[in-house]
């Protein structure tokens, strides 16, 4: 669209003066973080619940229900949510977007946590109970630490799903609330201005920094952890 003419910081300047766009970026981040967090909590509880079912018929039924949101197309989910929210009288905006994001993230968390739970040997729990652990202790000291990698995977998966979701969000935004994907899409009719490019660069740099920081933290934890064992 634009010919390369040289380097300039002009678009970054313009980006930071555009409060509307900044608010939208922050909205996107908050929605992603909160929805991933809440979905992870509900999803983990759900996965533990599903595992505790004794009849395999009930288990399969619940699991298939869980998969409904994964197999149905985003557009259908979005349209259904729009109808649901307007029927329930929920004003479109922050809460409608948050609720729908939580809803489509939960099944992902469940699916990522469940294999970890199934892989865990039931003897571990029996042993803990034998040694006098209460139910709460079993949950917090045995089960949760064991499935921790699954929980983190679920959380980050939910986070990315929420960040890049367009179709569902498109239907349930309204009243001045918007997320980045929807906003960029509406800009497309008149050609996208270069501050979107500037914004993408910044977001990319920030995520890159986070990854680097995360890498160093895990390195350090691993080293001190190993030192402790010796």
């Amino acid at each position: 669209m634009y010919d390369f003419k040289g380097f300039t910081m002009e678009w970054y300047k313009e980006l930071f003066q555009d409060t509307r766009l900044l608010i939208i970026v922050l909205n996107t981040l908050v929605i992603a973080l909160l929805s991933a967090l809440i979905a992870t909590i509900i999803g983990v509880i759900g996965a533990i619940g599903i595992r505790s079912f004794t009849s395999s018929k009930a288990k399969n039924t619940v699991l298939s229900l869980n998969n409904v949101l994964i197999v149905s197309p985003d557009v259908i989910i979005g349209a259904s949510f729009l109808i649901l929210f307007t029927m329930a009288g929920i004003k479109l905006g922050f809460y409608s977007v948050l609720l729908s994001h939580i809803a489509f993230s939960i099944p992902i968390v469940v699916l990522l946590v469940l294999p970890k739970l199934q892989e865990m040997s039931p003897t571990l729990i029996d042993a803990a109970r034998d040694l006098g652990a209460s139910r709460w202790d079993v949950l917090t000291k045995v089960i949760l630490p064991y499935i921790l990698p699954g929980i983190f995977a679920g959380f980050f998966m939910a986070l990315t799903y929420s960040l890049d979701d367009f179709a569902v969000t498109f239907f349930v935004t309204g009243n001045g609330f918007s997320t980045l994907s929807v906003e960029i899409y509406s800009l497309a009719r008149r050609g996208i201005s270069l501050n979107i490019n500037a914004l993408s660069t910044l977001l990319f740099v920030v995520t890159l920094l986070l990854v680097v920081v995360y890498y160093f933290i895990t390195q350090r934890v691993r080293q001190t952890g190993m030192g402790g064992k010796r």
Binding site: R20, N175, G176, E183, S186, L187, A188, R189, R190, G191, S193
Partner: peptide, 11 residues
């Protein structure tokens, strides 16, 4: 609340 096409007004 104004509902307009993208980039269709001088802000």
């Amino acid at each position: 609340t104004i509902y307009n096409w993208g980039d269709y007004i001088d802000t």
